[in-house]
Simulated assay, not measured.
Amino acid sequence: MQWSTLVATAVGTVLGVLATLVADHVRWRRDRSERNRDTLRTAFTEYLTTLSTAKDAFSRAEPSPERVGKGHVAIGEHGVYAAQQQLELVAQRTLVDKAGRATLSVLDFHDAVVAGHTTNSQEYVNAWRAARHTRAALIEEMRKALQRG
């Protein structure tokens, strides 16, 4: 047997194995990236859903001055804190910070409603707009995170 045939076979085998390993690695990274994106998407959706549910419930709350400042209990009952903690596990710090601001803005909205401010009062409108604005900023950050993922 000639050395050149043996060397060519060995080189071909090594190149074939290397090509397979590289292709498997690329596929593994793509699959991992997709799983991470799905995890983020699920956490984002759950948080936004619970936050919206809480805000909607707060918009129907009856005035009750003794409940001003106690929205953290009500927001916890809607699962917002649990969803926010999930975000803390999977999302980047900037996104978690924006989620915290969104939660606080909904708490401020709660306080405006239970303080007795009606839908046409400036306090109610300001709190509602602030909640909407912080939610929009959060959603924009979420979209960026999903594109990066």
Rank of each mutant, 00 (worst) to 15 (best):
R60K: 11
S59G: 09
H72A: 03
S105T: 07
A91P: 09
V80A: 01
V80S: 02
K70R: 12
H78M: 11
P63G: 03
L51M: 11
E88P: 04
A83T: 04
R67T: 12
A82G: 00
F109K: 01
L104Y: 10
L51A: 09
H117E: 14
A61L: 12
Q86M: 11
S105L: 02
S105G: 05
T50K: 15
D108H: 13
T103E: 14
D56A: 12
A57I: 02
E77F: 04
R93P: 14
A112W: 02
R93K: 07
A91M: 08
V113E: 06
Y124Q: 02
S59K: 07
V68C: 00
V90H: 09
E123Q: 11
S105Y: 05
G71Q: 08
A115S: 15
A102R: 03
Q86D: 15
S52G: 13
E88D: 10
H117Q: 11
H110P: 05
F109I: 01
I75K: 00
Q92R: 13
L104E: 15
E123K: 03
A83I: 02
A61P: 07
Y124G: 03
G69F: 14
D108M: 08
K98P: 03
V125Y: 06
L51N: 05
D97I: 12
V73G: 00
F109L: 03
G100I: 06
V90S: 10
A91D: 11
V90N: 07
Q122G: 06
A57E: 08
H72R: 06
L104G: 11
V113D: 06
S52D: 14
G100R: 05
G116K: 03
A74Y: 07
L95Y: 07
H110K: 03
L51H: 05
W128I: 08
V90Y: 13
V113S: 08
F58K: 05
R101N: 09
T94W: 08
I75E: 00
A74W: 06
